[in-house]
């Protein structure tokens, strides 16, 4: 299989966008889905429950020191940066906010790019800041694949715009077309 992981970042409008994305993913998807969604809330349990109702894959909070599971959606815990460690397991950090955010999309994307290299797909969805753009650039520099939600299709276009400006993309697509695209890219 060419791709072994999918990392996703979103902010404003992200809960709805994630719901649409996760509902469209194939139940037999074999890659782990790792998500940073800026919520600003104390924990992600509510987000997890909301997404679990829509998702075709199980949705869990990422646990430090455990490896991502294929066919499972992992959410970054609130208040921590989520990273992929050299051994492929999840790691957490409470280092300074990046783009006013912790968890930050850039931190996840950067560390995932270092681990998965060309086998990684990075996806930037709706959001009102620039988080994720540098991370997506890191993914592309390691020959991973970049997908960005079309800005005109996003509730908040700033994040997709920044990603396109700073990183560029291999695919720019409307939200409803992204899950089918990923299903295709990740089919064995």
């Amino acid at each position: 299989m060419k791709y072994t992981a999918l990392v996703v970042g979103c902010s404003t409008g992200g809960v709805h966008a994630l719901g649409t994305l996760l509902a469209g993913l194939a139940p037999e998807l074999q890659v782990p889905v790792i998500v940073v969604c800026h919520t600003g809330s104390e924990d992600v349990e509510m987000l997890r429950e909301v997404l679990a109702l829509k998702s075709s894959l199980p949705v869990v909070e990422a646990s430090e020191r455990y490896p991502p599971q294929p066919g499972t959606v992992h959410l970054a815990p609130a208040g921590y940066h989520l990273l992929i460690e050299a051994d492929g397991c999840f790691a957490l950090s409470v280092d300074a906010r990046v783009c006013f955010s912790r968890p930050a999309i850039d931190v996840l994307f950067d560390s995932a790019a270092a681990h998965y290299g060309a086998q990684l797909i990075g996806l930037v969805l709706t959001g009102a800041n620039e988080d994720g753009a540098l991370g997506l650039k890191a993914i592309r520099e390691r020959r991973g694949l970049a997908i960005v939600q079309a800005p005109e299709d996003a509730v908040a276009p700033e994040m997709p715009q920044a990603a396109l400006r700073i990183a560029g993309a291999d695919h720019t697509a409307a939200l409803t077309d992204i899950a089918p695209l990923i299903n295709r890219l990740c089919s064995p």
Partner: peptide
């Protein structure tokens, strides 16, 4: 598997070294 060895542990990044 990737053909360029990146991210597979075959060829470590300069930064990691």
């Amino acid at each position: 598997m990737s053909d360029n060895g990146q991210g597979t542990g075959l060829r470590p990044e300069a930064e990691d070294i």
